[in-house]
Design a protein around this nucleic acid. Structure first.
Lengths: 337, 337
DNA sequence: CTGTTAGCGCATTCAA
DNA sequence: TTGAATGCGCTAACAG
């Protein structure tokens, strides 16, 4: 391995001087700098990651925690995180907390490896996890990407405002002349959707539409991991209604697609008879037929912003809790009139 | 920070003894071991990642390089890699080479951070990348997950045998009484599919089916990143044929789904008139209608195996090139008779 | 079986 | 503006 010492010898200076050049210390004379840089280049020198870490305690590494890898949502987010991290000289490690026995143990393992900051995603965080994260964030920058967590904690956060996004979607449908809107709620296991439904209710109020209990369908617990099927069940439910809503909003896209599929299979014309609106803008929504109208989260930007917050707090002087809220964008395709 | 020295003081032994206990040196007397372990626990000591690295040169880190994050195939593979890595005390970092300007530069950056091994995925590797990887693998364990690379290099590799998988699919269709099989080739940008088509041709020979040039459709270059659309075009092509094949195999699932969609939209009954077989078993194939018959790669096991090879080579004594070939599994669903 | 000692490569005083 | 000296926390001889 080629060390700082070799460079020093080559350039006829001391180790300290080389160290100064490497760390951009301005107090180095220009021609010594040039000399040293030449030596560095010639020897193809790269500072030892460890030796550097042992002195600085930093690894230039950000951990991205996700509950599931095989979810393109996190893939996109990863892209955003990496965009920013790479630009700033950081490396991202992704970790799947869904597999790990204990999330906290996992995080501790990461901390042992001296990750500099943590971006935390979850489907469902316990109160004790929140406490843990809050304590943790006193020493290590943490960003949570979850609306519920973001609102109810003292943590940095980045999320899409499900409440207002749904609310606005109701306004959109209303403007199209729709007066009766149903809703498909997922079961409780994913907390991100919590405020979406509430935004829907608020939208109803604002648009002076009446709330009809029978227009609200909540997925059964067993449908949990198969949203497509759950959506179909929701479709069946609406089919069974004497009087049907003229639009249906859903907590997530797959529910919308399943529902729409089931309705079509039973002769309902979409969007002529019933409009459908999803949430999340998964890829499938674009390919499926008819293409799904949905609310898109700016996932990539969100990841980018999260990384930026971490890095700013790492490199800046003061730290204050940052709350970054994005608004979902309604993407109108073929399931709405 | 609490160091080995603090533990030594607490347990009334020397640093070396603590180090021995931590590293499971058998030559430590049992009661000293117990004493030290108690001290470690009491002080909640964890060895410094850096100090350790500076001495051993190892990080217990494996890099997984993928050309794209938002591809669930790699998500699944990641799960496999992590299963094994986690079990063995390694951490996985995923890196997107698709974004990076220069792949080699990226790899070098990882090497500077002392990743212990590299699992390399690609859509399309240049000759110079192969050389680079071959040279690299002399010092650092490398596993390539690509059939073309795997066959034509001296590198460790793990891949699914596209050749035989396709070949066997032809046999399967033949047993079902199908005598005329078409094929949708993707364009050349993804080398993984290279041998699939060749396996198809071989299957034709073995089953004494005749090769008909007009039954082979190759996607145009512009269809590149939209396989769904490309598949639809393929469907149109087959529609235009006077005499149609009674089955169509494709290089990848999305092509199959697009093709099937287009055929159905034009009144062809699937699978009664034409059977369709995809490749890869993407999730969409399962939800789409009719559910797609396809060839599944054991993606998760592949990732697991790749990690295992890396770790074995890291921890074992001799190193010899390992070639691990999996066979795809035909998953019969509703697009085949 | 255990302690002593000498670095690993670097950043950072303190002197010059 | 530079160099010499010190120590970060650990492992690995070597001695005992």
């Amino acid at each position: 391995m080629i060390t700082i010492f070799d460079v020093a010898k080559e350039a006829n200076v001391s180790k300290s001087t080389v160290s100064r050049v490497v760390n951009n210390d301005p107090s180095v004379k220009d021609d010594t700098r040039v000399k040293v840089q030449a030596a560095i280049k010639k020897l193809n020198y790269a500072p030892s990651f460890f030796a550097k870490g042992i002195r600085t305690g930093k690894t230039k590494t950000i951990a991205l925690l996700v509950p599931e890898y095989t979810n393109m949502f996190y893939g996109e987010m990863f892209n955003g995180v990496e965009d920013m991290a790479f630009k700033k000289g950081y490396v991202v490690v992704v970790c799947n907390t869904g597999n790990a026995t204990s999330e906290k143990e996992y995080i501790n393992k990461l901390l042992e490896r001296n990750v500099d900051g943590i971006i935390y995603n979850t489907y469902n965080a316990s109160k004790s996890t929140i406490n843990f994260l809050e304590k943790l964030s006193q020493e290590t920058p943490v960003v949570v990407m979850d609306e519920l967590l973001g609102r109810n904690s003292n943590l940095n956060c980045v999320y899409t405002d499900g409440y207002n996004s749904s609310r606005e979607a109701v306004h959109y449908l209303t403007k199209k002349g729709i007066k009766e809107i149903g809703y498909v709620k997922n079961n409780k296991s994913i907390q991100a959707t919590k405020y979406r439904y509430q935004g829907f209710l608020q939208g109803l109020k604002e648009c002076r539409l009446k709330y009809k209990k029978e227009y609200i369908y909540e997925c059964t617990e067993e449908a949990k991991s198969n949203y497509m099927k759950a959506g179909k069940k929701a479709g069946e439910y609406f089919l069974s209604l004497q009087r049907k809503p003229s639009a249906i909003m859903t907590d997530i896209d797959l529910l919308a697609i399943g529902c729409s599929t089931q309705l079509i299979a039973n002769g309902i014309k979409i969007p002529e008879e019933i409009s459908i609106v999803g949430f999340d803008n998964i890829e499938l929504g674009e390919i499926s037929h008819p293409a799904l109208t949905t609310i898109a989260q700016p996932t990539r930007e969100m990841g980018c912003k999260a990384a930026e917050i971490i890095i700013d707090q790492l490199e800046g002087s003061e730290r204050q809790v940052e709350k970054m809220v994005f608004t979902g964008e309604l993407i109108v395709r073929d399931t709405t009139i």
